[in-house]
């Protein structure tokens, strides 16, 4: 695919926050309490750019919470108390005065279930661009085409761009959501079990897309299926009961796990 050249995923060249190739997410002593539950306990980790980081662990271990703390979606939902630092590209996003919309733009989220906005396919993608001040029909049409192509969706939907997005299949919807996220030119992509609601073929397409996209983006992926992590991960973070047990490159963690819990998890003793 020629499309994966440096910069090709960013036709706007407007935000281009990924200029810095070694930008990374650094989490320092992150603690999250929701109500009386202590969900994340002293989490410390580093997430690298231009690589796929998989967060694995049994359900309820705080994977999704961790992911959602990266773009400050947590504080919207319930009574949450967050302490610690999440440093993206040198700035602590929980620092006072840090602009939340800016953070969220940088960190594109691909949720578990595809969630198209209640509008047409075209508007779904142009929505984010319009918000961030990209105007002009021609330009928007260019952007929409570009990102639909990037998500491998263009050929399937080019004749019905103005039909409601909820008429597409689930797999297509998820790719649309991905394209929508890319259109605001994020730096990282946060994927929250993004393939778990899809059929095997659609999830394969998404996986392949991620592998291509990592040339340009840092991808953080929460996944339930070990095999998926095995297939695509460059780095792996293993979590258990709100704590990070082990982290490292995929090779280190999968081939030579240090911690007993990790070994058990990898051998399928619990899930």
């Amino acid at each position: 695919m020629d499309i994966i050249k440096q910069g090709m995923f960013r036709p706007n060249q407007k935000f281009c926050t990924n200029a810095n190739a070694d930008a990374k997410i650094e989490v320092q002593d992150l603690n999250v309490n929701i109500g009386t539950n202590h969900i994340l306990k002293d989490v410390n980790l580093t997430i690298h750019n231009q690589a796929i980081t998989c967060i694995i662990g049994p359900s309820g271990c705080g994977k999704s919470t961790l992911l959602r703390s990266f773009n400050r979606l947590l504080e919207d939902t319930a009574k949450t108390k967050i302490t610690g630092k999440v440093i993206v590209d040198g700035d602590d996003i929980y620092e006072k005065g840090c602009e939340i919309t800016h953070v969220r733009r940088k960190m594109g989220l691909l949720s578990q279930k595809p969630c198209p906005l209640p509008m047409s396919i075209f508007d779904n993608i142009s929505y984010g661009c319009k918000i961030h001040g990209i105007r002009g029909k021609k330009k928007l049409a260019m952007v929409v085409k570009h990102y639909l192509e990037a998500a491998g969706l263009w050929n399937e939907v080019k004749d019905r761009l103005h039909t409601p997005a909820n008429r597409m299949s689930l797999g297509q919807q998820q790719r649309l959501c991905l394209a929508r996220g890319l259109a605001v030119e994020p730096q990282f992509i946060l994927a929250d079990e993004s393939t778990s609601a899809l059929d095997p073929i659609s999830s394969k397409i998404i996986e392949d897309l991620f592998v291509k996209l990592k040339a340009e983006y840092g991808i953080v992926m929460v996944t339930h299926t070990l095999r998926q992590a095995l297939r695509i991960a460059d780095y792996v973070v293993f979590m258990y009961m709100g704590e990070v047990i082990e982290q490292g490159t995929a090779e280190e963690v999968f081939k030579n796990p240090q911690h007993e819990l990790t070994q058990k998890y990898l051998s399928g003793a619990f899930s």
């Binding site: 440096q6 910069g7 060249q13 407007k14 281009c16 926050t17 200029a19 602009e99 800016h102 961030h132």
Partner: peptide
């Protein structure tokens, strides 16, 4: 390349 990148801020 990095010289031509704009640092985007929310308006």
């Amino acid at each position: 390349m990095s010289q031509q990148q704009l640092q985007y801020k929310t308006s």
